[in-house]
């Protein structure tokens, strides 16, 4: 018991530390494909360090929600990581679905406070960002739940049609949840297109550092879930951690390719995007009810 707890704590630390690296790899890949030099893969670490050492500016209108939100977001993403690590496939079927769904609930705790903080400073940028963020995530959540249900019903240890379809649907959800093109764009600060960035516009210094770290970790959480859906058999392979890192890398590079090859959609087209993923998830559930 104690042993398992220590192992999970160790893994959480390791994954949290490597989480910004994944973002760095994605950014580097994008720049390489665009024939640019770009910053090093370690740039996300430099950013976080810089932000932690800076003073922060806080709006005069803000209340305690504004201070609390980054801490809660960070704690929520750590907790989601813990839960996902507890839910390794191959365990009892129902339990892993239960824990994965709880992980989504924990992430929505952070999102709730972040969206409130967006409204707190009284700037319309923040309000716009909050509104759009909760809009997108409320349509993404049902798809993610179906995908998790279908995946966990398959048992998660060998290749199934339903699992792959669920993985595909989950991939589209992950694009939306990690604010990537075509749903959102992490690199923009143009008011018409910002979603997540608009919500956190008022933040600076160590609070912003926490928020950035939290989004790297959240991305890691989603990539872990994806790796289970898309590479079900790999979990049992020898050299587990190496295989796992390779999987995460492959998913990250695939994400980078998608980001540079499509244009960002209008906000209201994301509903179409997510309803498409909903129907794929539904197809996955039909496949699973046929025993595929």
């Amino acid at each position: 018991m104690l042993n398992t707890i220590m192992v999970i704590i160790g893994k959480v630390f390791a994954l949290a530390i490597f989480a910004p690296l994944v973002s760095g790899i994605i950014r580097k890949t994008k720049n390489t494909i665009r024939m640019r030099n770009g910053p090093s893969v370690l740039q996300p670490y430099y950013n976080v360090r810089k932000l932690f050492l800076k003073d922060e500016v806080i709006s005069k209108n803000a209340s305690w929600i504004f201070y609390a939100a980054p801490v809660i977001v960070f704690a929520g993403s750590i907790c989601a990581l813990v839960l996902v690590l507890m839910a390794r496939p191959g365990h009892l079927v129902s339990n892993s679905a239960a824990i994965l769904i709880a992980a989504f609930f924990v992430l929505s705790l952070g999102r709730f406070f972040m969206a409130l903080a967006g409204l707190d400073a009284g700037s319309s940028f923040g309000g716009m960002g909050s509104s759009r963020e909760v809009f997108i995530s409320s349509f993404a959540e049902p798809v993610a739940f179906i995908a998790i249900f279908v995946f966990c019903m398959g048992g998660g240890d060998n290749f199934r049609v339903s699992g792959v379809l669920a993985g595909f649907a989950l991939f589209m959800v992950v694009i939306a949840e990690t604010s990537r093109i075509p749903v959102d764009n992490q690199e923009t600060h143009l008011e018409l297109t910002m979603v997540h960035e608009a919500m956190v516009l008022e933040y600076s210094g160590r609070s912003l550092a926490l928020i950035e770290l939290a989004s790297h970790i959240k991305q890691m959480v989603f990539f872990i879930m994806l790796s289970w859906c898309l590479f079900p058999a790999a979990g049992t392979a020898p050299w587990g951690w190496a295989v796992f890192s390779a999987e995460i890398g492959v998913i990250g590079i695939a994400m980078a390719f998608i980001e540079i090859s499509v244009a960002k959609m209008r906000l209201f087209r994301t509903v179409d995007f997510l309803s498409f993923s909903f129907f794929i998830a539904l197809a996955a559930s039909i496949a699973s009810s046929l025993g595929l």
Binding site: L119, V134, S138, F139, S285
Partner: peptide
């Protein structure tokens, strides 16, 4: 599908209380 409806409801309810 029922579970998905519940998930959508949960997301929208959180949005509404934000």
């Amino acid at each position: 599908v029922s579970a998905a409806a519940l998930a959508l409801t949960g997301g929208l309810a959180a949005a509404c209380f934000v």
